[in-house]
């Protein structure tokens, strides 16, 4: 899926800074791989810039500028955004795009895999606000056992490609599946299919927090 309102909701929410880290990781990695989404996302960030310009200013302390210049003298602060990435690692191009390369090692052997059928999964992030963040590897031509979801699942294809009842997904594509979908993804022959999957737990669905656009959007 590269062109849908549901994907667009995610891009917009990412630009507004409303996604929790696991979903933000998946969306940012999608952006690294997908140029049309990057162009759309650029516009959503520009909306933020324009709204910032139009905000009613809030008075700063009288000494704020002097204080800031003194801060500047003390040197830069480490900032929270991660992404400034080395694209080359030991002379080779990195396997994963930024920001995923900060979360997942190039070598899959360094992850703890748990198998199920022709597929295996490994945790990328510890469970976070009810989200599970995993890498899923499906052997070429093999299927993931049929399953439904308790919550929703976002799946981003990193390598290879797969097909299920809802469509065909290639590198950089995101599948957005909800609890009603009973699907059995099958990897295309020729190459193992590796995906990043983010699932939210039922807790997240029934919690007191209202939700608006997409269940993955923080509101």
């Amino acid at each position: 899926m590269t062109d849908s309102p549901a994907l667009d909701d995610l891009l917009l929410a990412h630009a507004a800074g409303k996604l929790d880290e696991p979903v933000a990781l998946l969306v940012a990695t999608h952006l690294a791989l997908n140029r049309p989404s990057r162009q759309r996302y650029q516009r959503y960030e520009a909306v933020g810039g324009m709204l910032l310009e139009e905000l009613e200013p809030c008075e700063m302390d009288a000494s704020a500028l002097t204080a800031t210049l003194a801060r500047v003298e003390r040197g830069p602060n480490v900032n929270g955004a991660i992404g400034a990435a080395r694209t080359v690692h030991g002379g080779r191009p990195r396997r994963w795009p930024a920001p995923l390369c900060h979360y997942v090692p190039d070598s899959l052997d360094e992850l703890r895999w748990q198998g199920f059928g022709g597929a295996a999964e490994a945790e990328v992030l510890p469970e976070h606000h009810g989200y599970r963040t995993r890498l899923i590897r499906v052997r070429a031509g093999r299927a993931v056992p049929a399953h439904t979801h308790e919550g929703e699942e976002l799946t981003l294809v990193l390598e290879g490609s797969f097909r299920d009842a809802s469509g065909h997904y290639r590198r950089g594509d995101i599948e957005i599946a909800d609890a009603s979908i009973d699907h059995q993804p099958v990897a295309d022959p020729g190459q193992d299919c590796i995906c990043l999957a983010v699932t939210n737990a039922p807790l997240r669905l029934t919690g007191p927090i209202g939700r608006l656009l997409n269940p993955f959007v923080r509101i």
Partner: peptide
């Protein structure tokens, strides 16, 4: 400003993309 807010107020990391295709 948005990233500072996520970092300081929400205490989360903000994954940023770099074109890779």
């Amino acid at each position: 400003a948005r990233n500072k807010r996520i970092d300081s107020l929400r205490r989360e990391k903000r994954p940023e993309h770099e074109p890779f295709d």
